[in-house]
């Protein structure tokens, strides 16, 4: 089992992905926490733009972070399989190339929020993705996420 994911590692992601010019967004609860949502999460969820070039950069960044990638895994990331789950690195990481409920990366990128240098999906998109996923854990967290979104918007 990988170690816990913490804020310092979010910063490592930011640095490594910038170094390799990867277009990505924090999404899911890790994204919400970076925006100030008071909760816990056990991994990082990244929405990565699907293209061969971006996938190649993503592979480089992941290797720099300490993830062990086989050639097959690298190819899947370059190809942009919809969902890649990595538990063989310094922390757990989900790469999502086509999250539920979000029309496209371009739309999410246009809506994004930059906070402390972190590119993060807009809370509306995080909520839309959880609504579309419809998992029990999402249904539990949505009322509070919506309330946080309303508070967050009022503060801006």
């Amino acid at each position: 089992m990988a170690g816990r994911f913490d804020y310092a590692q979010a910063e490592e992601i930011k640095v490594a992905f910038a170094r390799f010019d990867v277009r990505y967004l924090f999404i899911g609860k890790s994204g919400a926490v970076l925006l100030g949502y008071p909760d816990t999460t056990q991994d990082a969820d990244l929405f990565v733009e699907k293209s061969a070039e971006n996938g190649q950069g993503c592979v480089g960044a992941l290797r720099a972070l300490g993830f062990e990638l086989s050639e097959a895994t690298e190819e899947e990331i370059r190809r942009g399989k919809d969902f890649v789950q990595l538990k063989n690195g310094p922390f757990d990481l989900d790469l999502v190339f086509a999250p539920d409920g979000i029309e496209s990366f371009a739309v999410a990128w246009k809506n994004r929020v930059d906070t402390e240098g972190f590119p993060v999906c807009h809370p509306d998109d995080i909520i839309r993705s959880k609504e579309a996923a419809g998992r029990a854990k999402d249904i539990e967290s949505l009322p509070r996420l919506r309330a946080f979104r309303d508070y967050w918007k009022a503060q801006r």
Partner: peptide
């Protein structure tokens, strides 16, 4: 498992 991947989100779900 150290790694898993899915062609579609529906497959993962």
């Amino acid at each position: 498992a150290p790694y898993r991947s899915f062609d579609t989100m529906a497959d993962y779900r």
